[in-house]
Design a protein around this nucleic acid. Sequence first.
DNA 1: GCCTCTCTGGCACTGAGTGTCAAAGAGTCA
DNA 2: TGACTCTTTGACACTCAGTGCCAGAGAGGC
Lengths: 202, 202
Amino acid sequence: MPTTPDQKLWARTRQAVHAEVARTAMSLFLERGFEATTIDDIAAAAGISRRSFFRYFGTKEDIVLGDLAARGELIRKELEARPATEDAWTALLNALRHTPRPGQDDATTLQISKMLYGTPSLRARSLEKHLQWQALLTPEIRRRLGVAPDDEHDLRADAIVACVLTCLDVAGEAWTRSDGSQSLEDLVLMAVAAVRGSAADT
Amino acid sequence: MPTTPDQKLWARTRQAVHAEVARTAMSLFLERGFEATTIDDIAAAAGISRRSFFRYFGTKEDIVLGDLAARGELIRKELEARPATEDAWTALLNALRHTPRPGQDDATTLQISKMLYGTPSLRARSLEKHLQWQALLTPEIRRRLGVAPDDEHDLRADAIVACVLTCLDVAGEAWTRSDGSQSLEDLVLMAVAAVRGSAADT
DNA sequence: GCCTCTCTGGCACTGAGTGTCAAAGAGTCA
DNA sequence: TGACTCTTTGACACTCAGTGCCAGAGAGGC
C-alpha cells in the first residue's frame, strides 16, 4: 500500500476517523462500562452513523482488542528474528518481551485489563485472538523443534506455544488482580517456572 | 431438592423436555450446521415456543456445551479423591482420565468435535467453560502445592491447571484433526510431555 | 467537466436474548 | 370436590448486534 509517501486523503482520513472513534468509545467504556455502552451511543458520541461504525469495526469487541491481531504479527516477526541458539521457550518468551506494547500509562492499562477480565464477551474474544497468535507462532516453533513447519501430525509445537500464551494470560490476570503491583514480566516467568518445574513444585 | 424419591411431575417433565429439545437441536446442528440453525428452527422442530426454549437453555451454545459445567464439578470431585502421593500434574491428569465422558459413539463425538472446533462462537464458549474448570480445580492444586486454597497471590497453581487444560484442548484439536485416529489420552500425554520437557525438545 | 472509486447515511432485515402478562396445569389442603 | 398456590407456558413487544442494499456526495485521475 505505501505507494505514495503521503497516502491518499481517503486512507488518511479513514485512519484518523478510526482512531477518533476508538478513543471516543474507549472513554465511554471506561466511564460507564463495556456492556452498558451500545453501538448507538458510540456512533452518536463520535458523530458518525451506526452503519459507518460497522465499516470501521467489525464488532464492539474489536475496539478494545483490534490491535491484538496486528500485535500477533509483530510477535511472529520478532520470534523469527530470535537467534537459532535460543530454545523454543526462550525464543517465545523473548519475542513476547521484546515486542513493543501499546503505549498507555499504567493506570489506563490496568483499567482496560480489569474491563477485559471482567467482561465475558471481551474475555472470549481475547482468548480467540490468542488462538490466532497460536496459529501464527506455531510454524516457527515447529522449525525450532526440527519439524516441518506445516507438519500437523506433531503436536509438540502446538502444545508449547499454547502453554506459553496460557502462562501469559494467567500472569496477566494475576497482574490485574494485584492492581499491577508486580511486574508482568516477572509474573510470566513465575508461571512458566511453575509449569516447567524449574522451581519448587510438589 | 430430593425430598421425594420420585420427583414432582414438574421436575420430571422438565428434564424430559430438556433432553428432548437437546436431542432435536443436536440432530439439526449435525444436519445443517450450528450457525445455519436458528432458535426458531429448533423450537419449531421440538414443538415448543421460542420463549420456552430460552427457559431451558440460556444460549444456543449451551445445547452443545451445557454438560461441560456439570463435568467440571465431577472432575473436581475426582481430583480431590486422588491420593495425596500424586503430584499436581499426575493428579490432574488422572482426574481428567477417570472422569466419565458423555457416552456417545465415536463417530458422533468426532462430528460434534469438528463442529466445536470449526464454529467460532462454540469455540469461544468452550474456552470460557475451561476457565470455569480452572477456577474449580485451582484450590485443590494449591492445596497440593502446600499453599492456602484461597491464596490468590501465588499463581503457580493457576498456571499448572491452566496449562493442563490447554494441553487437553490442544490434544482435542489434534484428535479432531486426525479424525480420531489416535487415542485422545495418548495425545494429552504427548502434549504434556512436550511442555514439561520430559521428551526431546530443543 | 466527465468518469470512477470510495465513503457515507438511511432503511429494512435477521437473529439472539429479555421482560411482562395472562392463561392453564400440577400439587396441597380441607 | 373446591379453593388456593406454585410453576410452566405461549404470545407480544422490546433491545441490541450485525448485515445487505441503495442512492448520494466528495476525491482523484483524465
